[in-house]
Design a binder for these strands. Structure first.
Lengths: 630, 630
DNA sequence: TTGTCGGCGCCTTGCCGACAA
DNA sequence: TTGTCGGCAAGGCGCCGACAA
């Protein structure tokens, strides 16, 4: 990759980055969080080769470059930081820490811009683009309405300065603004799909600019990204399933036409762990360094303006406290607020970073939503009142820890709702103070530890899934839980309808993280959210297995044939019967029974499973033998 | 790039590599030529950081991996070599140097295979593939001729093991074999264009395999590759021009659909110079090393079996000797022979590699044609009888030197025919023993030094262009010529018709290599083959320049306006008048006057020029200030 | 106001035999 | 024997207004 390093218009950059993204000004002071930088790399960064590094390092901003990926158009920046020495935080002067906000540089005027999330119709192959009236009238060049129909050619420059031409027409009854000719070329070239956003911006010199913000892609999002958004239920299984199929087909198309390297639109690997190590080492030794920051990467900022850090450090967060967080509806530039109650306070990684305030500040912009509001549009029925509960679905990876915390709290208190799945009943037996109520939610058995905290959501149910396993957790996990709080947090909420698909992914992720001993196998029904654990070592044949599964799920044994697939430790997906039972017994790690009735559904889920199988292979490098299946 | 490193079927590998490619057997002995390795990298490799390295190093072959590029399907191999110490060549035992030939491994049976160069119709979007009868009947599965029409699905595996399905039908009047459904998908996926070849092979296990051999792409082929083939004249200017345009349009299409990285189908940069340095250093120090070898890269082998080297070293090549070389018609597996007379013998790089036999052996497979016969198909009218003269057009890069040589010969003797161009008349004045006959060939003045050597070709005229410049050659060149032979060889033949375009490219290349002092500028007419040198420092204005040019070429001065373009030292292409004359005078390196009459021609040539301008930028890294223009 | 749909025309894709090299 | 061409049909692409949320 050549370092063209051509800084683009900061206004366009900010428009693409999103309204909540702020960049520190040159010569301002910021705190650099190596931990946050590591999270930004979205892979595990092993700091063990370095001496202990401070959790946060005060730096002066030497330079900021506004850049865009030449392939994906994703905006990112390179920030040069000069450490200011290892003085006590209290002694420091935080005054001149100006921040370049959404309005770009020192110019207080926000340029006229408009963002729209692409609908299916917008992204369809045979279609045009429905231009919202506001955009057409305030951003686009003035149309001559005396013509019939009024039509013009709109010329827009992208982040690379490349020029795109669109036919802009005002037609139909009732009249509406549309981009027709040229639009589908743009969609194809930029490989846009429904859910991605497009930003139109009228620059100061009058040029019309166009930028894109890609939706977080990939079904395995929750698997790939520690802070990834778990799309979850919402508008029903079928609609989501259909959408994921669409994505896959698109992706295939894209992959066939482009090199494998070019197909990676979803990020990851943009910041390499070596870069983090290098930066952290330089920072700790007081030498200038440069970091790349991808504002769309859904991880919290790791260069936070010094005054904000200082202000937030004054607050002692503890569970039970109410809090309020700003986030922006990206396509309309309004600020929305989310209010909630702090559920748990916990140091993210007490071994490596003791007393680190990282993600404690979830105020000083760690509280910012890493995911953009546009993601919420997957839920077509979404209403403002649902935001809080949706936010709770934000997937808090146990590895990267909880977002809200102090250091001396019982984390079992104030949890909204514990939905225990899989083999976690073992945990419950250990924590003797929990009450067990079994009830059905959307037809699925749910075990709660506490009643719903009404403060989170007024008309929906929110649950927190405990993903913790007891004795069979892997080494990594043991370390992480060693602070004794005894509960790995992971939140999931189903606001209106439950989606088995969504849940299964989630569970797949958890299983990935937890791992299982040989002989034990997770079993899932395609249509159900809840998995069970089965000890294969007590079984002697496929017939016995099928009988057992038939009993377990109350279905006909004959229906089992050709409907049970599993993944083995190597990641291969097989059907029962593919290999001798003795081999199956040893290697099967996750087993899924497909619905017998709907053949359509089977096809779809099978493909989904294959997809996750790929992700599973990746993940296995990190956590050893595992099994994922949706 | 991940090292999948999955060795593919050696038979398929050899079928794709071409019939002339031989790979050394494991445990056999070969000589490793660092010089050849460097040429293989196709960029300048600077050995100056290393101590002096032997010109050839005897090695044992540790391992051979047969691989294929995951993106382009280009076959290559990795050869592990273990140096056998620095003993005197004469003392060595060359016995067990078995070679894996085209028939693959030790198996003496050559598998049934067939290669065909794609015609326009084959590569057209809306078309199928005309299967030569031989291929259909001996390679494809047997067709049921009782059906009407006979039809079957042919399934073939590519180098990655990926399966492709083609509808194979025998229809039409007269009957012919065709691949229809599935073919265009294959063409698109593999990004094949007319001129590329496809190889069908029936493997030993009965599987049908399909491989591809890409034609050397890009108009600047002769510029990019030291041993590149100069397509030259042939079936008229317009047909060639048309074809090159076609290539360009195809390329654009490809580029739009694929990432920039994926667009590089033409090679270059496959072997990085660092790898060469590393290998050479390890080889010199007697440590095992690995080299990658791209048999389609058109550079001579640099791992040559030891016995062949030894045998050839016995021969004292000198000019005037007759020689005979084998090469294969790749699509029919016949061996053809080329016979010629040695024109000049010269050490390739006497400073860096004194007494190196590199390219002394263009016998021991250095004489092999680096280019495939398929390149000759650009000349549609090509007949077997023309091969010799066509071969003479093979572009012998002065840098990489002449292929046939000894060290004590007057290189001015026995030259087939010297066509002196540009400012080389100065040379002639220095070599007082040459006779000067001026005559016209295809309307161009030609100065011969000797009569045509009839032995080269019976019905065509062959010439050797002397590309030598006198006092204005650059440092690099001076070094190269320092052995005193005083003649840089470059051969060019126009068998039937002359193409100004072809000639111009050739000249462009020569000018590149030779370089010019500041102030001196090469001047070319678009329609002419012959360039002149102009001392810009004696001119004072654009007007004076135009007047001078008008005189020089006998055209109207007014016609000059807007028809003179030039390239400066940075590689930029400009029109006269774009910058102040004083700047122009200092930087212009090559100047071209376009035909005024035919606007069509101008357009075409302009595009060609731009293309070459790009190549010029690359080349400038190697030779300093230069000027290329076609 | 704008997202989605069916209608429909145009243009590309791709299969065919004719024809000629 | 096989390369190229025009014919032609199918189907995808893409523009349109209708309709409804």
């Amino acid at each position: 990759m050549k370092e063209a390093e051509k800084s683009l218009d900061p206004q366009l950059w900010h428009a693409c980055a999103g309204g909540m993204v702020q960049m520190p000004q040159v010569n301002s002071k910021v705190f650099y969080f190596p931990q946050g930088h590591a999270e930004h790399a979205q892979v595990h960064v092993d700091f063990s080769s370095l001496p202990r590094i401070p959790a946060l390092i005060l730096c002066r901003v030497g330079a900021v470059k506004f850049l865009a990926d030449p392939e994906t158009d994703e905006v990112f920046s390179k920030i040069r930081l000069i450490p200011l020495g290892n003085r006590n935080i209290g002694e420091l002067d935080f005054e001149d820490d100006g921040v370049v906000g959404a309005n770009g540089s020192e110019n207080p005027e926000k340029p006229a811009s408009f963002a729209k999330t692409l609908t299916q119709s917008d992204a369809n192959n045979g279609g045009g683009f429905s231009v919202p009236r506001y955009c057409a009238e305030t951003i686009f060049p003035r149309l001559d309405y005396t013509a019939d129909p009024p039509v013009q050619t709109v010329i827009a420059k992208d982040v690379h300065g490349e020029v795109w031409k669109f036919r802009h027409i005002y037609r139909g009854t009732p009249r509406r603004h549309l981009l027709t000719t040229g639009w589908s070329t743009f969609v194809n070239q930029k490989k846009l799909v429904a859910g991605d956003s497009i930003v139109f911006l009228r620059a100061e010199n009058g040029d019309l600019c166009v930028g894109i913000r890609r939706a977080k892609r990939g079904i395995g999002g929750a698997l790939e990204s520690p802070s990834g958004w778990n799309p979850g239920p919402g508008n029903s299984v079928s609609s989501y399933g259909g959408f994921s199929m669409f994505l896959r087909e698109q992706e295939n198309k894209v992959m066939r036409n482009s090199s494998p390297a070019g197909g990676n639109l979803s990020g990851k690997g943009k910041v390499r762990p070596e870069s983090v190590i290098e930066a952290a080492a330089l920072a700790a030794s007081g030498q200038p360094f440069e970091v790349a920051y991808y504002p769309r990467a859904s991880t919290p900022e790791f260069c936070v303006k010094a005054s904000a850090v200082k202000a937030t450090m004054r607050t002692q967060w503890c569970s039970g406290m109410r809090f309020k967080m700003a986030f922006e509806t990206e396509d309309s530039s309004r600020i929305s607020w989310f209010m909630g109650t702090i559920a748990s306070v916990q140091v993210a990684d007490p071994l490596r970073w003791p007393n680190s305030p990282w993600r404690l500040l979830q105020g000083a912009r760690h509280a910012q939503f890493g995911i953009s509001l546009s993601d919420l549009h997957f839920n077509n029925k979404l209403q403002p009142g649902l935001f809080p509960s949706n936010f709770q679905r934000y997937n808090m990876n146990p590895r990267t820890s909880n977002s809200i915390m102090t250091s001396n709290t019982n984390s079992n208190e104030n949890l909204s709702c514990l939905l225990t799945i899989g083999n976690s009943s073992q945990n419950l037996e250990k924590s003797d103070n929990v009450k067990r109520h079994q009830f059905l939610l959307f037809g699925q058995p749910i075990i709660t530890e506490q009643q719903i905290s009404r403060s989170c959501s007024s008309d929906t149910v929110s649950q927190v899934l405990t993903g913790k396993s007891s004795s069979d957790e892997n080494q990594d996990k043991v370390k992480f839980l060693s602070d004794g709080s005894g509960s790995t947090l992971d939140q999931q909420v189903s606001p209106e309808k439950s989606s088995s698909t969504g849940f299964s992914w989630h569970q797949g992720f958890q299983t990935t993280e937890l791992g299982l001993d040989t002989g034990h196998c997770k079993v899932f029904m395609e249509s159900e959210d809840v998995g069970r654990t089965l000890d294969l070592s007590v079984l002697g044949s496929y017939e016995e297995l099928h009988r057992r599964l038939a009993n377990m799920f109350g279905i006909e044994r004959s229906d089992m044939l050709n409907h049970v697939v599993y993944r083995d430790a190597t990641g291969a997906v097989k059907q029962t019967g593919d290999e001798p039972f003795s081999d199956f017994m040893k290697t099967a790690k996750r087993l899924t029974i497909f619905n017998v009735s709907s053949s359509n559904n089977i096809g779809r889920t099978w493909i989904t499973g294959m997809r996750n199988a790929e992700n599973g292979l990746d993940a296995s490098n990190k956590t050893g033998p595992l099994s994922i299946f949706a």
